[in-house]
Simulated scan of single mutants.
Amino acid sequence: MRSYQDPCGIARALDRVGERWALLVVRELLLGPRRFTDLRAGLPSASPNVLSQRLRELEDAGVVQRRALAPPVAATVYELTPRGRDLEPVIVALARWGSRAVPLPRGELSPSALMIALRTTFDPGALSRGRLAVVLDGEPFSVEIARGALSVARGEPEAPDATITTTARTLRAVVFAGHEPRGVEIAGDAALATRFLGAFARPAPA
């Protein structure tokens, strides 16, 4: 790995996670473990070789680790180490800072990226509590709102108040572009789900 050879903490951090794609790999793992194929789907512009290299570098830096799932799954997943999870406030702060950057590039958000975007643009005055399952492109996420704060994790929540099923593209258009919720399926507490869909704001351009 290349190094800045600078003792500053910022430089030492960038020595470990400053290479192209590295922080986006962390983004994809922030909500839970992923297989290599899942990471490829979430980062389609990264070549398999580059993605493999970044994963090796992040493993060497103690940010990412591999884990073998028990049979019958028999798959290997990548997940953040405790030190890797310490990057969460950094990622969230970068997401908030970058959300105001213009122009907005073309392209779609991965389900993980979209759920992090929801977290960083949530209006705490719009909804104070609730538990929702959000299923994007077949992938479930657990959304918990308590005391005006929103948390997200990969996987299905227990006994959600409402379930929203759609695609990442559709949800992004509804939440951030004000489109009608066509193609959005709601089960359970429809009023809660509707308030949830309206609880996010597009940050003003910087």
Rank of each mutant, 00 (worst) to 15 (best):
G18L: 10
E19M: 13
W21I: 07
A22M: 10
A22T: 13
L23A: 15
L23E: 09
L23W: 13
L24H: 12
L24T: 15
V25C: 07
V26P: 07
R27D: 11
R27G: 07
E28D: 08
L29Q: 12
L29F: 02
L30Y: 10
L30D: 11
L30R: 07
L31C: 02
L31K: 02
G32C: 12
F36T: 10
F36Q: 10
T37W: 07
T37R: 15
T37Y: 09
T37G: 08
T37F: 06
D38C: 09
D38M: 10
R40I: 09
R40G: 12
A41K: 15
A41L: 15
G42H: 04
L43P: 03
P44Y: 13
P44L: 12
P44Q: 14
S45Q: 11
A46R: 06
S47P: 10
S47C: 08
S47Q: 09
S47V: 02
N49R: 15
N49G: 11
L51R: 12
Q53L: 11
Q53I: 12
Q53A: 07
R54C: 03
R54D: 06
R56K: 13
R56A: 08
L58I: 14
D60Q: 11
A61G: 01
G62Y: 03
Q65F: 00
Q65W: 01
R67D: 02
R67N: 04
A68C: 02
L69Q: 14
L69G: 03
P71Q: 03
P71E: 12
P72F: 09
P72K: 00
P72C: 04
A75F: 01
A75L: 09
A75Q: 15
T76Q: 14
T76M: 11
V77T: 04
V77F: 05
L80Q: 04
T81M: 00
T81Q: 05
R83A: 04
G84M: 01
L87G: 03
E88Q: 15
E88H: 12
P89S: 08
V90C: 05
I91S: 03
A95M: 10
A95D: 13
R96T: 11
R96Q: 12
R96L: 03
W97V: 09
W97I: 09
G98C: 07
G98E: 15
S99Q: 10
V102G: 01
V102M: 03
L104G: 04
P105G: 04
P105R: 05
R106I: 00
R106A: 08
R106P: 00
G107P: 03
L109D: 13
S110M: 14
P111T: 09
A113P: 00
I116A: 02
I116Q: 07
A117D: 12
A117P: 07
A117T: 10
A117W: 02
L118A: 06
L118T: 03
T121K: 03
T121A: 10
F122S: 07
D123C: 01
D123Q: 08
D123P: 00
P124S: 10
P124H: 14
G125Q: 06
L127E: 11
S128P: 01
R129P: 00
R129K: 10
G130K: 03
G130M: 06
R131C: 09
L132N: 11
A133E: 14
A133D: 06
L136W: 09
D137H: 05
E139S: 03
P140K: 12
S142F: 01
E144A: 13
E144G: 04
I145K: 01
A146I: 11
R147S: 14
G148I: 15
A149N: 14
S151N: 12
V152Q: 06
A153F: 02
A153I: 01
R154H: 11
R154D: 04
R154W: 02
